[in-house]
Design a protein around this nucleic acid. Structure first.
Lengths: 211, 211, 211, 211
DNA sequence: TATGAATGAGGGTTCATTCAT
DNA sequence: TATGAATGAACCCTCATTCAT
């Protein structure tokens, strides 16, 4: 039971510590995303994490440090490509729809993280740089590789790749914003969104044959 | 009668009041964009506006109301149609570029303003709804009429108008976000942005002739 | 119309001033009795009196002085006996019922004055002395004369007059208190109160014949 | 086990907490009775209680809650019946005198408290209701039972019990008012008060034999 | 004399952080 | 190391009072 050669890499103490840290971050993500950074109180986070207020300070140096901790989790975005590899089989448009759809869904439910972090990103320079480097740029990089590949394959016409990728990210972020802001049109048609964006992006607005 | 040179439309009192309100909003924009809504204190705003703390409450009902006041400035929607009328002469793409460009520029003038407001909008549901109603929806309505007209004229292929308009707004808002978040690609190429978006939106990503 | 020898004793200016002062006191009585002294604001009083905030300071030196002004009005209590003279015809008990009834009714409706003043009376020593001298003592004095007369007439058995009067006043104040505090029994049977008190005071609780 | 001498029932922590709450209430009673509820500041109360301002909020939800805490002390109703039981031996009048006397004395110990609370009760409807429910009604209930019993025993003539009880309470509250308001007659003869009230209530004002 | 906007001191309350246990 | 009560700085807002017009 207290097996010293247990199959775990970490001693029990360390494992418990790690778990507790995770619980705290989970709680922070939940509370902050629900109320915003400033309305969230250490006390409420501690309560949800089922630890004492003071305990949080054994794991994080203060409230701002919690945000940094949350940001670090965004690195887990790397799992993304893995999930989408399957869709890479199909043509560019299919992949786009699948990927966009998956991300939109992911965002909306679980990923309160962004909603928790974004506002502060604009205000805290350190956080801003971190966010840009760890999140936006990382995703942009993945997308750029992919779009470039599609261009090379002739599936997409020769475009300015970095710029195009930014536009894709912009629509993505913008749609989230509209939804959060309460736009009924966007909310009602959320499920068709990925396809609509794909239609627009791939076919354009020009009348058929006018290109 | 008691205004021999009548150089002003408003009596002095009213003019002073108006000016003071402007000064307060200016100060609020500056302080809030510098520190974020919550870090900004009424006291600091009052100091910058060179009024007493209490005076602010003669003009705004409270801190949230200051944000609403800033939003009203940001919207400034009235002049939009007028400016767009000129561009309505050209074809759809030209108009789109002109309008989008104009709006992006306008926004940027108020970039400080945006940095002050957007994060709050994302986090405060009531403010979000307000922003949506007072700003996004108004613009959406104008755009819908225009896009519908272009479709009727055959300049744009038959698309789902409301949805398409949302996508345009999404790119717009999203680009602002990326810029404010510090994305270098977006910032560096801000001036070509309108054209790039138009290219993407009108021609699509599909290789020529594949549509 | 602007008759210099008008039948008024005071010049028009002075009369207007007097009227305005009355309006301010009326408003003060209403607002203070409704919200209590501290919750009542000069602004609200000014609004109700239909004058500007600053104007009040031309008539009263400050908020506390308003209370003194209201207290002065309590002197008008002297009208009381006049109203009751009619009842003096009957026997002691009839008079008691009539008087008590009249005062209870009077208190409940118009005389917000007391409710406005009482709380402060406990806190402000000057006001306290004033209240005791101008109100409680004045009424006590009237009552004492009356009770003494009744005793002399043999309508009331020889009692300690001052003390008895205090007990009457105590029941009176206490009943108001119970009513204001929300006692249902007292409120429901308000109209029979004067008679009940008279029954108790005149007949006592002792079983008939046991006295 | 970790309390070798076990001299206390409560663990140290809990005892300290209890003590601190008492200290806060003591301070509140002192400051509020000295200055009145509104003039009393949390800061001053905290200072007198020798705690930090914020500490008060660990014990009371806010300033109004402090008043409620004081009221709870004032009521202290539990011990009432016990004390009265002894007096229940004698006849109705003896009991009345004993009980009334005891309560008047008890109240006076807490005169400071009363001065702190009563004015608010008069002005704040919610507090008034609370006072009524937690204090007046409880006592009324006890008294009703007793008076009914006395009526059944023939010690008191058949009266309207609830109403009579209210009148007793009214005298009680009213006497406190007069005393607190500074009436010399009431103050000087406080010790004979219970007997005087009993005389009045039991024998009435009517001349002997006239009932 | 009336006005009503400007003033700014003051107060209740919150909450991140500390630290004795 | 966990606890959670104590701390007290900081902030929003109110409102009595002043004073230029």
């Amino acid at each position: 039971m207290d097996d010293p050669q247990a199959p775990h890499r970490l001693p029990r103490r360390a494992r418990l510590k790690r778990q507790r840290e995770e619980r705290i971050l989970d709680a922070a993500a939940t509370v902050i995303s629900r109320k915003g950074y400033h309305q969230a109180t250490i006390h409420e986070i501690a309560e949800l994490a089922d630890v004492a207020d003071g305990t949080i300070y054994n794991y994080f140096s203060g409230k701002p440090d919690l945000l940094i901790g949350l940001m670090a989790r965004l690195a887990d975005v790397e799992q993304l490509p893995a999930e989408l590899v399957a869709a890479l089989q199909g043509d560019g448009r299919s992949f786009f729809v699948a990927a966009f759809d998956q991300r939109l869904g992911h965002m909306l439910q679980g990923e309160e993280l962004l909603k928790a972090i974004l506002p502060q990103v604009f205000v805290d320079p350190e956080l801003g740089r971190l966010f840009h480097r760890e999140y936006l740029l990382r995703i942009a990089s993945v997308l750029e590789h992919y779009v470039q590949a599609q261009v090379d394959l002739g599936q997409i016409r020769p475009v300015d790749v970095p710029l195009t990728v930014r536009l894709v990210q912009a629509v993505f972020v913008g749609l989230l914003f509209l939804r959060v802001a309460g736009d009924a049109t966007v909310a009602d048609r959320w499920s068709e969104m990925a396809r609509s964006v794909a239609d627009l992006f791939f076919d354009g607005l020009s009348p058929a044959g006018s290109g």
